[in-house]
Nucleic acid binder design. Structure first.
Lengths: 268, 268
DNA sequence: TCCGGAATGTCTTATATAAGTTATATGATA
DNA sequence: TATCATATAACTTATATAAGACATTCCGGA
């Protein structure tokens, strides 16, 4: 007896959702709504649902998959909570786009002290494809001998350099990335040109002091404090796809962390 | 016509949930499940539901409030997503406890580079009640003339000082806090002795260099880099209740930020 | 001590209805 | 006839409820 009984309902025409013959131990079982969710993620990963497109209606998806609208809805609930899709009552559900505003709020946490978030300008210092270094292979889980696209750039707010960063990406996933000038908003570029959607990031922060070339690039004296941010970005399917080490000046800006602002706060 | 029609159902005996007479504009309307959620928050704020206690069952709450189990469940869903309650299938739903492990993972983001999170020891340098400074009044939204409890302490990992921090709290909310030695795990103490549950924190980070007494306290030379973390902690009802400025050494540890790992990731 | 089963809790699914959006049709007016 | 404002129809997502499946605990009996 299991939820799967719903899936082999007679009026469900050969549903793509299935489950291998249940082993004695019920390990690996997932509820129906989560199977539906995984099917949706698959469609986004393989490009059937590109970013920005409108999904079929909940009723339509329910009919197609042979489940109820509430089940489709619960799957979409989780995807919406993860900012993978966006819903608007009366209009429809859309695959989230990595537009400038979204990246600014979701992935960019360095904000000016006055509180007004702005997207920094970007100047590429160098870019090219190289053999992956040991640290890059470790971070991106690459095999020995793999190549990476490497980009080094300075980002400025109000014409003043604020961030000096180096990005490394698996060349296999992003062929030709460094041929042209890297656009300002990279995550939108990954999605539109390579079908890679960044879903999750992890950042590790340390305080350091600037030295040598880094200090000169950021127009600060040696010994000046800076925030070193090491970011690992993960795609929808869970693969690590971008490794980024940034040196950030925090003289007139700060790094902002909010813990769990999910539902609207300020209850009662 | 509105959801409230469910609330004045005949078999619902004088529900505590209500809504002022609807003005022509339907502004201020809240769905039923959100009213239920706010009622639950009220019960936690005023102490009827203390931390660690088990809630009545979803069915029981539904019957008491005159709504369906699914509505109670949706309210609890949001509270569980905010880590305000904890649910265990087959056992029940509990008001979240600020035990050491939870604080370690939810509010303490400074982890050793080897990845093994540990709770740091704490040594109080000074504590007492003082007139609130201007910055403290601004952070905690206190009126002029208000008093604050102020605690200054050093925290150590493996007998080595790592964090030097100053805490400020409204004296009105925490009378007598500085009379006794501040316990290591403060948030649990706030809940058990003062009925104040920390629900949310905001942190602002800057990189600085140590100087003078701070450097000496942390056993580092002047000019050594450190992470300055300014934290504002907010209670269940939305009031700011603790302001904390910490200087953290990041020589062998780092500050960890994960963006949105809500539902189980790694789909597909 | 071990095991079966009832009791009681959450979890999942399904269905009905409300509320919001947009496109279409309608009708008055210039 | 062309245009514009206004109903109205057809979608959409949002909310509420009910019923049954699954998980855990506890107690009685062997």
């Amino acid at each position: 007896m299991s939820y799967i009984s719903y899936m082999i309902d007679d009026n469900a025409p050969s549903s793509p959702l299935s489950r291998k013959a249940a082993p004695p131990t019920d390990f690996g079982f997932r509820p129906l709504y989560r199977q539906v969710k995984e099917e949706f993620v698959r469609r986004m990963v393989d490009g059937r649902w590109a970013t920005g497109t409108a999904l079929p209606s909940e009723q339509g998806l329910a009919a197609e998959l042979g489940v109820s609208q509430g089940t489709v809805r619960k799957a979409l609930d989780e995807l919406a909570a993860e900012n993978v899709v966006v819903r608007r009552q009366g209009r429809g559900t859309y695959v989230a786009e990595h537009d400038e505003a979204r990246i600014l709020f979701q992935f960019f946490r360095l904000v000016p002290d006055d509180g007004i978030a702005r997207f920094p300008d970007s100047e590429v210092l160098s870019q090219g494809v190289h053999a992956a270094r040991k640290d890059e292979r470790a971070a991106l889980a690459l095999p020995p001998g793999a190549k990476v696209a490497r980009i080094r750039r300075v980002r400025s707010l109000a014409r003043s350099p604020v961030i000096l960063e180096t990005l490394s990406l698996p060349d296999r996933l992003f062929p030709g990335l460094t041929q042209s000038l890297a656009p300002n908003s990279l995550y939108a570029h990954y999605a539109s040109h390579y079908g890679v959607t960044i879903a999750h990031t992890t950042e590790r922060l340390k305080a350091v002091t600037l030295a040598g070339e880094d200090a000169a690039r950021l127009d600060r004296p040696a010994g000046h404090p800076a925030l070193r941010v090491e970011r690992l970005a993960t795609a929808l399917d869970g693969r690590a796809v971008e490794w980024r080490v940034s040196l950030c000046l925090t003289d007139t800006a700060h790094y902002l962390v909010n813990d769990a602002p999910k539902g609207p706060h300020k209850a009662a």
